[in-house]
Design a protein around this nucleic acid. Structure first.
Lengths: 365, 365
DNA sequence: CTGTTAGCGCCTTCAA
DNA sequence: TTGAAGGCGCTAACAG
């Protein structure tokens, strides 16, 4: 199958060897025209014999299709890296499923990389992660009329197609479940203040959901933001939960909701020695946004981040947006922002609470 | 700066507006010819006014340079996903630092995606992760004469440029350190049997290093493979470490070395309830291959995986390999495998043991 | 059912 | 210091 001495085979080499015209080879490869079985076979054979593979750049130049999806992944100060990385891999799989490759675009400036990729025609569409309520990249893609879809639910839900876990619903579900189990007061460990200040969508919506459920159930919910320093975090939780540093303060919070990827790893390890409380045995806990198949969270009550579903869906949306733009270009319409948004689609994934082995009710005395 | 009504600007539009020839614009953009300050300024202005950005596909077609690096990331049965994902992000950063983008290629068949990317000219070079001792992809890239570099040290160290943590050295360092602290027997929790059966380089080398250090120090080292089932793993460790399920068996292992990304998260949480032993207080532990900046491992004695260093280095190696191939092509030499390997480079990163707050000596009675 | 032809947008050799 | 022209490899519109 391959290995010529000199250069890579081109479509003309194949045509020559098969005794047909280059266009015929193209048609056989793209299936966009009916070809006699005999010719098709001859072409196939020539392709194999020469180890021919079409050059992506030539295809793209001619057809203005890259079959590439860009992933815009702004580097964040903290490090949701494990979540972001997991998404990147899952998105790559999803893209391959639709016949696309995935181009990673991590840039310090949130929008710069994305603009570059769009303008240089490196991709047909983009997927945006780490979405803020008002995300600068939304303006960028609309300005350059570039198809895009979001993992994350922005304030303006009609700006672009998006998909997300219902973080507000998830937080509310966690609070309601604990309230129903008999807790009258709990601590909600939310994403860091930096995330909130950046107006990260998942952070704001989670907190909002928790507050709403607190009001609805009458269960007191104290919202605290997770810290970068694990030791400091353990100290603060001890102050919140205990008087003596050993047992729960009477009338104080009796459970924990954690909405911070990977924070719970640390909590599980450090809480016993820091507070004398074993989690979740002495202190029931629900974790929101764990990664599926994560060994260390499989024994916890949790609401998982449906990475696979979100990746599949957002890829579908991005490709659909690219398709729609192409159609309109074909019909030589003006690709104004209004039209871009016409092909909108949303998917808000309903949260599901997976119970761990430990009961959520307050421990008896 | 941009937004024309109809089409994207081309180099001809820029030339026209600036009143120069297209080639002049090209030279201004690429800096490959001396241009009068005045012309340069006119071109610059036209570029800005039209929001011009060169089309990547046209550049590539003409120059056969993509400025893209491919990352070949085979999907594995288990899920080192957190490690793989972290590498993907770090590699993307490293690539951008050198003016490249990163294309993710996750394929079930280890070699298929890589071959496709190489043959279709989607990238200038590849970085290969999850390297086996004898890796099929090594043959693939040599067969198609595609520049590549490995994160991982294959059996044939001269096949391709590579970089890796010295896993054997790391395991030996962990064992030696614990032996020096007074332990006479310990358990080495190695990667899963599936990883070993796949002859994954890091797994085999780690185990080999541990065995070697055992022989050298006289410290008994029992190698066990980590299980997919966390509960089963806890049970097995209990059987190995205790008779009564509560305290260490006299004369038995008194410490743990863990070489399995993310396994230690689970251990920390489950060991106390499963065995009555607190880790690392009652059972000193050294973890090999933790991710930097991982909150939950910052309180452990550990040998970190130098993700940043490896990513930077392998990117450098891949780009250098691409460069070298291009030079040879320019000199119209035959790009035989021997020549490809000529530009070889290696970097074996020396392990460094970061001490946790807990002493490594066996606890006193 | 198949062949011919004209570019897609850019870089680079050749000529001035 | 600058222009003109050719072609990278492919697809799609137009002929037969």
């Amino acid at each position: 199958m391959s290995s010529k001495g000199s250069k890579l085979a081109t479509i003309r080499d194949v045509a020559q060897r098969a005794g047909v015209a280059p266009s015929t080879v193209s048609y056989v490869l793209n299936g966009s025209r009916s070809i006699s079985e005999e010719t098709r076979e001859r072409v196939r054979e020539a392709v194999d014999a020469l180890g021919y593979h079409p050059r992506a750049s030539a295809r793209t130049l001619r057809s203005s299709r890259t079959r590439v999806i860009a992933l815009a992944l702004p580097r964040r100060a903290g490090l949701q890296h494990s979540v972001d990385g997991r998404f990147a891999i899952e998105l790559s799989d999803a893209a391959h499923g639709l016949g696309f490759d995935l181009l990673l675009t991590t840039s310090r400036d949130k929008a710069e990389g994305l603009r570059r990729v769009a303008l240089s025609g490196l991709a047909d569409a983009a997927v945006l992660m780490a979405v803020d309520m008002e995300d600068a990249r939304i303006d960028v893609v609309r300005e350059v009329a570039f198809p895009a879809a979001l993992i994350g639910r922005p304030a303006d839900e009609n700006a672009l197609p998006w998909t997300d876990l219902d973080w507000a619903g998830a937080a509310a579900l966690a609070v309601r479940t604990l309230a129903a189990a008999g807790h009258r007061s709990l601590v909600y460990l939310a994403p860091s203040e930096a995330e909130v200040r950046a107006r990260r969508s998942y952070a704001l919506r989670g907190i909002e959901g928790a507050r709403g459920a607190a009001a609805a159930t009458g269960c007191a919910v104290e919202v605290v933001h997770s810290l970068d320093d694990p030791a400091g975090e353990a100290r603060r939780l001890r102050a919140l939960l205990t008087d003596d540093g050993v047992s729960l303060r009477p009338g104080g919070p009796t459970a924990l909701v954690v909405q911070h990827p990977s924070a719970h790893h640390h909590l599980l390890a450090s809480m016993p020695s820091a507070t004398g409380l074993r989690v979740p045995d002495d202190l029931p806990m629900v974790v929101i946004g764990t990664l599926p198949e994560d060994r260390s969270s499989s024994a916890l009550s949790r609401i998982e981040l449906p990475v696979r579903t979100l990746a599949d869906e957002v890829t579908r949306l991005a490709v659909a947006a690219a398709e729609a733009l192409r159609q309109r270009r074909g019909a030589s319409e003006e690709p104004g922002a209004r039209l871009l948004a016409a092909a909108l689609g949303h998917l808000l994934v309903e949260p599901e609470l997976l119970p761990g082995p430990t009961p959520l009710a307050p421990p008896q005395h």
